[in-house]
Design a protein around this nucleic acid. Structure first.
Lengths: 126, 126
DNA sequence: AGTGTAGTACGACAACCATCGAACATGTTG
DNA sequence: CAACATGTTCGATGGTTGTCGTACTACACT
């Protein structure tokens, strides 16, 4: 569990305090590389109703903040679920001001496990 | 958790000790009906490497006995995994003499969650 | 009847997991 | 700076899970 994701800061530093974010860091949040995404981990991440809701929500509208889901759990539990999804490689999280922007790793998942995400999303509508 | 599966013994009792098996009971082993199969349960059942191996094995050759997989776990653990798969609706188990025959519930799964099983099976080959 | 084979049932145990609350970090804004 | 908003970290807790071993059931074969 290490490798990659160490670029992006230096080159973006030029236009820093002029622009708001748009490219911001993603630092500290560690995501698995595409080839490192494991099937069992993805299936486990998706096997929780709460997380399934999150993923279904992101499928409808990407780049949503954690709070925008208003799930029936506390903030800390929420953090937990987003981390599970992130570490499994299902979503990507970026810092953006005081919030986190979450997005589905559609392309990575489709390349690695073709058809899986779509079938789960279709199945989740029931 | 109840419903269905209460027939089969009485009517089959007529030709009992004449024939070997071929149609045998399935009694006691409770399987969910197709409409009762839940996505989260299926994903959870598939999120274990050992169970993934079982399912992949059944995809190659159906109707295999529990012992034919020689998994690196004891018999009781084995029983446990097969039960999880059965109760989630992923496999069907039938008594047959001294063994249990396991088969994938392909049709049920395909009808209920189209494409899911196939994408998982494809993904599992890595 | 006796031995063997295939699997289940039950109890135990350690690891994991979803959940919470309280305290903290960080960025935004009055 | 102070107040606020959005999340994270940490410890605790109760429930679930994967694993095992031992004991048990059920069928088959000699």
């Amino acid at each position: 569990m290490d490798t990659h994701v160490t670029q992006g800061q230096a080159s973006a530093a030029t236009a820093r305090l002029v622009e708001p974010p748009t490219v911001l860091d993603e630092g500290k949040l560690c995501h698995p590389a595409r080839e490192e995404i494991e099937l069992a981990a993805v299936l486990h991440a998706l096997s929780d109703p709460m997380r399934l809701r999150i993923v279904a929500g992101l499928a409808v509208e990407d780049k949503r903040t954690c709070g925008s889901f208003d799930l029936p759990v506390t903030k800390s539990t929420c953090t937990h679920h987003f981390r599970v999804l992130r570490e499994a490689g299902v979503i990507r999280q970026r810092h953006e001001g005081t919030t986190r922007l979450n997005s589905l790793r559609r392309e990575d998942l489709d390349k690695r496990f073709p058809g899986l995400l779509d079938s789960v999303l279709t199945a989740a509508e029931a």
